[in-house]
Structure formats: C-alpha cells, structure tokens
Nucleic acid binder design. Structure first.
Lengths: 193, 193
DNA sequence: ATATATTCGGATCAGTGGTCCGGATAAGCA
DNA sequence: TGCTTATCCGGACCACTGATCCGAATATAT
C-alpha cells in the first residue's frame, strides 16, 4: 500500500470515528470525506460500503468485548459474568448510536463486512449463557441468538432519544427475566462489573 | 373539500396502505404517488409529512387498540388483560414494518402527527399496568413509559428479519419479567387473548 | 356559460450513496 | 538525478430521496 494511501486511510478512520460518535452510524459518508479533506470516492475506495467502514472502526471494540467475555468466564461467577458482560455490551453501543440495526442486519447477511464480528460476539455471549445455564442460574429456554436479540433490543432502546432514559432500568428488568430464581427488582442484577 | 381532492386522498390512502404493508414504513413517497397515478406534490399536499400519512393510515388501528384496552379492562383478569393487550400491540406492529421507530420518535415530539396517538396508546397500556399492579400481579417498579419502551423494543425485534423468528419467544420472556410471581417459562404468560 | 377558487403535477432543488475516468503523484529503476 | 509506470486521487456525474413552486387544468358556484 502506498504511503499516501495509508495516510488517507488512517486519517479517514479517525475522522469517521469522530463523526460516528457525534452523529451516529448513519452519518453522511460525504461529510466524513469532506471533514477528512478528501473526496467521497477516496473514502469509498478504502471502505467500499458503510459496513466496511464501521467494521474497521469497531474491530477493536469487538475484540475487546470478546476478550472481556473470555476473561469473565474464569474470573467471575457464571451469573455475574453473564450480567456484567451484557451490561458492557449495551453500554458500548451507546457510544456508537445506530450501529445496532446494522449489526442485526449483518448477523445473517454473510456478505456484510460486519457479519463475522457479530457472529463472534454472539458466540461469546452464548458461552457465558451456557455456563450460567449449567450452573442453574439462567433460564434454559433461551440460546445465544435469543441473547443477541435481547441485547440488540436493549441497545436499540438506548438509541432512541425518547426511550433511552429507561434503558438502564429496563436492562435490569430483562436481566431478571434471563436469570432464574432472581427476585423482582433490578438491584438483584445490577453492576456485577 | 372538493370531490376530486377527496377521491385522490382516499385513493392515496389505500395505495399507501398497500405500499407500507409490502415495503415497510420507509417506502418511497414517490412510489406511492406513482402507484396512485398522481404527482408527488399531490400526495404531499394531502399529507405534508410521512408521519401525517402514517397517522391517517394507522388512526383506525390506534383506535382499535385503545378500545381493546378499555374492553379488556373489564372483561378479563388484570394479568390476562395486560398480557393479552401487549401481545395485540406487538402483533399489530408486524403488519406495518418500520413504524416502531417512528412511534418512538413521535412520543416525545409534540410536533409529530403521530404524537397524540402514541400518547393515547401509552396511556391505555398504563391503565392496564396500573390495574395489574394494584392486583399485585405486575412488578411495581415500571410505569407506562417503561411498558411502551418494552413493547417498542419487542416490536423492533419483529421488524428485524434476522431476529424476528425469536420475537414471539422473547415476548414471553419479557412478559414473565413484567408479571410478578410468574414462574420461568413462557407458557405461563402465553395467549391470554 | 362564465368566473373563480381550488387542485393538480411537472420542473426543480438540495441532499444521499455510488461510479467513472482524466489527471496528479509516489514508487521503482537506470 | 531523471524517467517510467503503476497507483491513487477527486471532481463530475448518475439515480434516488423528500420537499417546494407555480403555471395549467378543472370542479364548483353563480
């Protein structure tokens, strides 16, 4: 890769990160290019689709979340690990507004640049869920896909300005449903991490 | 209102209903106008925004749902009434893909044409929730807004092709969280209506 | 039948994601 | 150092979106 191309790529990624954080994942690609002092075509050559751009942008976050899941699997109780990781996931999405809907679409679209990352994330959650289920701490009628869907739904809530204030509270409600034997009230499942 | 205007309005509404059912709430307004054999400007004169069009389109559905809530309030047990009505709401949204996000935006945007309907719907749910809470059948740490958010999140799940297959199942999971004393397992809360 | 008030819709605008190709430029070699 | 060439850049363009404007068509009232 030529030096100027590399420089443009890096600069575009940094600019895109700022733009997505400010305006959400549906920010205009033209705006990103403009802010980077570059033509739209240059952006689209390095990242042929919006998904490709976001994949490059979120790759490290994805890796951190899966690594966190691995770590929690040995460092915490099955229940705390699961809840803590779910909370991390929902908290993370609040930084990148609008990415949830793209992830939901990507997880069954094998052509999407985000597909692999989403599948990996789902698998990480499934492992934590399995462990909690084996320990008798999570209801056994849900699987990794259900968990992914629940997290996506909660993340989506956080994306909606009118519903976001309730997202934290409702996380507790949903978490209490996932954990068997948990009494009502979110205090039971809060901040394990 | 002139006769030709009335005819165009009615025809547009019928065409829009078909188009939204087929392609979702983000269907191109130009397409609707084209299919109705009318210019885009004509559509936008009758319905100045997409929200206004959807409001006219969904008005009867909204009224039916609120009427259903009133009816259930006297005809069923507090618990059955609440769950049955929630199920009706989520089932209804599956007919109009993409309307959930607009409703979430409309409920706190007093300028939106959908605002009033959304507020009314939330109030109807709040009444059923209150009744269930008074009967000790629903957890007391949630209110009408939380309920609205939960229904919206479940409806959003149904809108996502990859997650929709789990929407029904997860409705049971979430419903079990809303109902105090409900044992795990969705059978406990299924099909009261 | 005429006058008028209302409605209609093509033309147009700014915005979007995406494509193409001539020109600029960096890398490789003598 | 200077030349060649492969690579990269970005303005111009396309089809599409929602939205606006205004001259033309038309239904209604007299």
């Amino acid at each position: 890769m030529r030096a100027d191309a590399r420089k443009n790529r890096d600069h575009l990624l940094a600019t895109a990160g700022a733009a997505v954080t400010e305006q959400g994942a549906d920010v205009s690609l033209r705006d990103i290019a403009r802010r980077a002092g570059v033509g739209l075509a240059t952006l689209l050559r390095h990242f042929p689709t919006r998904e490709a751009l976001l994949e490059a942008l979120l790759r490290t976050s994805f890796e951190e979340l899966t690594a966190k899941a691995d770590e929690l699997e040995t460092s915490s109780s099955p229940e705390d690990a699961l809840v803590s990781w779910l909370r991390d996931c929902t908290a993370w999405t609040t930084e990148y507004r609008g990415v949830t809907v793209l992830m939901a679409a990507a997880i069954e679209d094998t052509e999407s640049a985000l597909h692999a990352s989403c599948v990996t994330l789902r698998a990480a959650g499934a492992r934590l869920l399995d462990r909690a289920q084996d320990a008798g701490r999570a209801r056994t009628d849900i699987d990794g896909t259900d968990l992914f869907a629940l997290v996506a739904a909660l993340a989506w809530l956080g994306d909606q300005p009118s519903l976001a204030p309730r997202a934290d509270h409702l996380f507790g409600v949903v978490a209490s449903a996932v954990l068997t034997g948990a009494v009502s009230g979110e205090a039971e499942v809060s901040d394990a991490g």
